[in-house]
Design a protein around this nucleic acid. Structure first.
Lengths: 72, 72
DNA sequence: TTGTGACTAATAGTCCGTT
DNA sequence: CAACGGACTATTAGTCACA
C-alpha cells in the first residue's frame, strides 16, 4: 500500500476534525463530491494534484503539509 | 493554472538536472515512460499521489518536497 | 534530448442510493 | 455522520511514431 495515501488520509482526517468539519462540510468547501472525501480518508484512491490543491485551499493549509509525515 | 503543477514542474526539473539525469534516465529509475516525465515538467497533467511517490523514491527525496515551494 | 499529437487502458472522481 | 456499492463520466496513465 502506498505510504503517501496513509499519510494523506491521517493528515486530512486530523485537520478536518480539528476544525469541526464533517466529510460533507469539507466536500462542500473544496467543491468535491461527498463520497470522495470518504474515499481518500479510507485510502481507496490516489488523489490527483489538482484535487489535493483544492482540498488544501479549503482547509487553509499549504498542499505539501497534507502529504508531509507528522514527525518531519 | 494550478499552482501545484508549476511548483512540481520546477522542483522536478531542478532536482533532475541537479543529479545530471535526462528525462529518459529519470523515467527509467521511476519506471514510467519518458514522455510522462516530459508531460509533468510541462504541466500538462495532474499527477496522482501514487505516481508522485514513485518519482520521489527514484529521486531519493521525500514526496512532499516535490510540491513544496522553494521559498518555504 | 525533449516536445508533441494521437490514441487506448486504467483510474480518479461524481452521483445516485443503502446500511 | 461515516462507510460503502453500482453505474457512470472525466481525467490520468501509458505507448508510439515523429519532429
Amino acid at each position: 500500500m502506498s505510504e503517501l495515501r496513509t499519510i494523506l488520509a491521517d493528515n486530512l482526517r486530523r485537520l478536518r476534525t480539528a476544525k469541526g468539519l464533517s466529510q460533507e462540510d469539507l466536500a462542500g468547501l473544496a467543491d468535491v463530491d461527498r463520497t470522495y472525501v470518504s474515499l481518500i480518508e479510507r485510502k481507496k484512491n490516489s488523489i490527483s494534484l489538482d484535487k489535493l490543491e483544492q482540498i488544501a485551499i479549503a482547509l487553509n493549509v499549504q498542499a505539501y503539509t497534507l502529504i508531509k509525515p507528522e514527525y518531519d
